[in-house]
Design a protein around this nucleic acid. Sequence first.
DNA 1: CCTCATCATGGAAGCGCTTGCACTATATTA
DNA 2: TAATATAGTGCAAGCGCTTCCATGATGAGG
Lengths: 351, 351
Amino acid sequence: MPDIPHDLTLEDIARMAGVSPATASRVINNRVGLRSKARERVLEVVAETGFQPHAAARSLASQRSYVMGLLIPAPASTILTHPNVLQLAEVITQACQEHEYLLSLFLMGSDADERRILPKITRKGFIDGLIVRGADDRSSDPLLATLSATGMPLVSLGRPTDLPHVSYVAADNMTAAYHAVAHLLNLGRRRIGLLVGSLEPYASQERLAGYRKGLAERGLPVDEQFIAVGGMSESSGAAQRLLQQRPDALFMPTRMAPDVLSVLHAARLRVPDDIALVGFDDLPLAQQTDPPLTTVRQPMAAMGKQLVGMLLDIVAHGAHPPRHVVFAQELVIRQSCGALSLDDRWRTAAG
Amino acid sequence: MPDIPHDLTLEDIARMAGVSPATASRVINNRVGLRSKARERVLEVVAETGFQPHAAARSLASQRSYVMGLLIPAPASTILTHPNVLQLAEVITQACQEHEYLLSLFLMGSDADERRILPKITRKGFIDGLIVRGADDRSSDPLLATLSATGMPLVSLGRPTDLPHVSYVAADNMTAAYHAVAHLLNLGRRRIGLLVGSLEPYASQERLAGYRKGLAERGLPVDEQFIAVGGMSESSGAAQRLLQQRPDALFMPTRMAPDVLSVLHAARLRVPDDIALVGFDDLPLAQQTDPPLTTVRQPMAAMGKQLVGMLLDIVAHGAHPPRHVVFAQELVIRQSCGALSLDDRWRTAAG
DNA sequence: CCTCATCATGGAAGCGCTTGCACTATATTA
DNA sequence: TAATATAGTGCAAGCGCTTCCATGATGAGG
C-alpha cells in the first residue's frame, strides 16, 4: 500500500503549532502583526507539512473563492484562427497570479454547452468574477446580457455596444485604422482598399470609420468600390471588384493574408512594390508571410492586466458605475507596407 | 439602484416548497423517488427562482466539487503548433458534461506558473480530478511525478514511461507508424525516409520502432541515413543527408509539412509522384497543404471520453491499480501518399 | 507602580449544503 | 385487519474554514 499523506486540517496545524485555529488561519492569510512567536511557529508547521487550506471550506467561510474565470465562447477551430485568444489567456493567467488569484478557463463551443456550462459557472461560491471575450465578433451579444443578469462580477474584452452597463476593455480600432491609412498615405499610396470579413462586428465598423476618416482628412474621396466585405478566396464579388480598381494598398484582417497573397501572386502583383499590405491583428502568422506583414497590434499584456484589475475592483466595490477603458494600438512596421526602415516603429496616439 | 436578485439558499427554497432542507437537497440531487408531491413542488420552486446551490457549500458538505481540471503545461505559442490540445480540451469538456461535471482549463506556461498554480489546483475541495497532457513531449515528466505525489486523482494523456503507477490513455504510435510504412510499401515505395523533430519523446521512439518493424517485416534493411532527427528548415545535416538519399517517400510530423513541401518544391520534386508524404498527426493544416496530406490520426473523441471515464472511476474507487489504455490510430488517406482512391480509408488494428 | 490604550489571541458562531439516523406514511402480504 | 416491508421525510450533526467578539498580554504615560 502506498503511504497516502494524511489530510491535515487547519485544526491539526493549529494544534501542532500550539495555537488556536483562529490564529493559524490569520497567519496563513497574513492577518496578524509581523512580530509574533505564534506566527513563526505556524509558518514552520505549514512549511513542514505542505498544508493547504481546504478550498471549499475557505470559500464558504470567506465568501471568496480566489478564482477568476475566463470564458471563451468559441469552438476550438475558431480559436485557431483567432490565436490571440490564447495569448490573452496566458496574459490573464499571469495577471491573476499577481493578485494571488487562480484563473480557470472555460471553453464553450456551442449553444448546448452554454446551457449546461453557464449555470454551473455562475453558481455562487464558484468563481469570484468572470472575464468574457465579448463583442468583438458580434455587435450584440446575448451571452453577455445573460451573464450580466446573473449578477456575476463581469468584464468584457471588446465593447458590447448594446450593454452600456457592462464594464469592458477594448482596443481603439478606429484610431488604429486611421493611423494605418495615414501611414499608407504618407508612403505615397493613394488607391487604398479595405477588406473586411464582415461589417457586423463593431470592431469592423470602427475600422471602416477610421479608414474613412484617414482618407477624408486628406481630402480624398472614399470610393465604395474600394471597400470589400467578405473573404478573398470566396467568390465574393466585392473582392474581385476591389482588385479591378487596381489598388496600390490593401488593409485587411491578418488571418486573410495567405489567401490575399496567393491571389496577388497569381495576378503577378508584387508586394509591396505594386501593392502595399497592412493587417488588422498581429497574429504570429504575420511574421511568417512573404513578405512579413505590417500590422496593427493590440497591447495584449496591458489589456490583460487592466481586465484583471477592473474585475478585482468590481468584486471588491461592485459593478457601479461601469468601467470602460480603451487602449491605443501599435502599428508594427514590417516589409509588406513598403516603409523603408525595418526598425521604424510608430505608435498610435492614446485614444 | 439596480435590483439585485436576492440570493436564495436551500433553506429558502425548502420553505417555499413546504419541505425540509434535507428533502429539497435530495430532490435537487435526484436522490428521492420520482413520484412524490414534495419532489414536484421543489422542482417548481427551483425552476421559478433559478436557484443554484452554493458551490462551495455543496463541495464542503459532499466532499465533491463536480469539477475536473485539465492542465495544459505549455505556453500559448506551443499550443498553436500543437492544436490538437485544443481539440482535446473541447472533447473533454463535452465528456465531462455528460457526467454533470464541469471542466476547468489551466494554462501553465512556465515553471514559475507551475510553482504558483499547482498548489492551488491540488488543494482539497477544489477539483475532484485532473487530466494532464503528459509525457508525449518528454519521456520523463517531473510534473506528473509531483502531481501524483499529492494524491490528486490523475490521468495522463500520453504514456509517462517512468511512472508506472500513473494511469494513462495513449495512442499506439508504434502500430500506427508500422501501418503507415506498410501502406507506403504497398504502394511500391521502397526508399522511405523518417523525419522526426527529436527522439526524446517516447512517442517518437515508438514511431521509429514502428518504422523499423515495417521495413524489417518485408526483409528490407534500415539505412540510418534515412532517419533524420531535427527540423527540415534548420541546417540539420541529418535532413540534408536524408534528401541526398533520394527517398521516394517521407514520414514526418504534420506540423513540418509546409517546410518540407517548400524544400521539395525547391528541389523540383513532385508530391506524390516523385516522393510520397505521410504525416504523424492529423492537424487541420494537413488539409490545407498542396497536395493534402495523408496522416495518422488519433481518435481524439474516444480518447477524451476514456480519459474522463477513467478519471471518474479513480475518483470513485481510488487509483489502484493504475489503468492503462492504448488506442489504435487511423490512417487518413489524402493525396500526398499517392494512393489512388480518395475514399480509401484504412484503419490500424487495435493495439 | 498603576492606569489606560493597543495589540495578539482564543472561543464560538456561523458560511450553505449533504447525509446518517430515526421516524412516519404508504404499500404489501398473510 | 394486523404484521411487516418500503419509501419518503425531517432532525441535527457536521464538512473545514473565517471572523466577530471578548479576553488576556504588552507597552506607554503619569
